[in-house]
Write a protein that binds this DNA or RNA. Sequence first.
DNA 1: TTATAACATTGATGCATATCAATGTTTTGT
DNA 2: ACAAAACATTGATATGCATCAATGTTATAA
Lengths: 230, 230
Amino acid sequence: MAKFTHANSCNTCPYKDYALTKLQTNDVDLIQNSCLIVNFKKGENVCKQGTEVTHALYLAKGSVKLYIEGKNKNLILKIITDSKYIGLQSLFGDRIYQYTITTLEDSQICMINANIILNLAKKNVNYLFELTRNISEATNFVYKKIIDINQKQLRGRLADVLLHFSENVFKSDTFELKLTRKELAEYSAMSMENTVRILNEYKKDGIIDIEGKIFTIKQPDILRKVAELG
Amino acid sequence: MAKFTHANSCNTCPYKDYALTKLQTNDVDLIQNSCLIVNFKKGENVCKQGTEVTHALYLAKGSVKLYIEGKNKNLILKIITDSKYIGLQSLFGDRIYQYTITTLEDSQICMINANIILNLAKKNVNYLFELTRNISEATNFVYKKIIDINQKQLRGRLADVLLHFSENVFKSDTFELKLTRKELAEYSAMSMENTVRILNEYKKDGIIDIEGKIFTIKQPDILRKVAELG
DNA sequence: TTATAACATTGATGCATATCAATGTTTTGT
DNA sequence: ACAAAACATTGATATGCATCAATGTTATAA
């Protein structure tokens, strides 16, 4: 199992979340005292669909995939890379994880007792407000995901996904995607074979360049048109 | 356009939301003074995808569909019938509606200035906590919706939808669905023709009974099996 | 360092589902 | 009360996509 250490400097932590700035010093101490910094190796589960929510999860360093496990296939809803809470809405909802979270590389996750966060949230409205904003934006993201799955077909979906990585996640025309083709497929809600096929189509057409896991968007405008037309 | 009246008795309103009980009397008055009770006729838009969020929307009486408008087809995410806030997460997120809401029958909607709700939320943590719980549950519902669309095929999806209406919404084996076949299709993420086809399949098999818009679930166990097997 | 498994690629096949078409039925508005 | 539009139904057709299959390539572990 993963190794862990106790947090000892949340206030000066370089991965600190903005919501923490809304808390009094002694409240940050409460979090710090409860907080375990757990080192996960690549491919380990951080939480598991169907289990009870006992901790708030904060991704300090690394990257994870958040996905729904189905009978035959999985659906990756989000790739989370930055210093971010992961799955906050599970704290306030029915306290059962609706999804599994797995690391895509060695990562550090802060685990804070759920009730401590809930109590702080009940005490400090500015803190709760930040968490709520966070949850709301997560919901809006999922709405966009649904519309993609429902309204576009393969080529459009994959174009969307590539643009999303380039523009929102890595903010660069060239990026290294820490996903296998299968995972990219699960993120785009299509089969792995078709993902490969369409990627190579785009490559042949000079729209993108692929070198293993290094992606280069060569003609973002065309990709944008494909994404738009579906 | 829809007629409206000013609210004058939020505290004693039979459609009052639970979250309101968390507010002081004078704070409820703030809401009451801002609150317009708008009478919408069947088929009118309550809010429109892509527009700015200026008001919190509370469905006092009636029923609405919340749906994403696409190029060719719409996707209904939720049918809301009870005394419920509709689209709370849009208040805390990027303040642009990601969806359109349309009434399914004549309905009364309370419209409260968004900033008044936000200010109260910032002042009263118990109130905000209830709103947050509300948003979280909405998010979890959407997650379930995604998994249905992604993992199951037509028959399973439609079985799921029928069971959901019977068990969660109307809590009865027999119910009147205020949806056209097209809307039922948009809610189940499939074509209208296939919706009709499969409904009649179920009818022929004696699993359900349909009389116009009156649905009767005759063999819920079989329907549950269909929903499970996909 | 070699064996084994996971990953990646490409082509061929089948099927679920949307779309098209034609027709009857019910609402809706005037 | 009538016309027009929206809704509902059923069958035939087309196609987007998953699945299967075969093979090469790259990680991973013993």
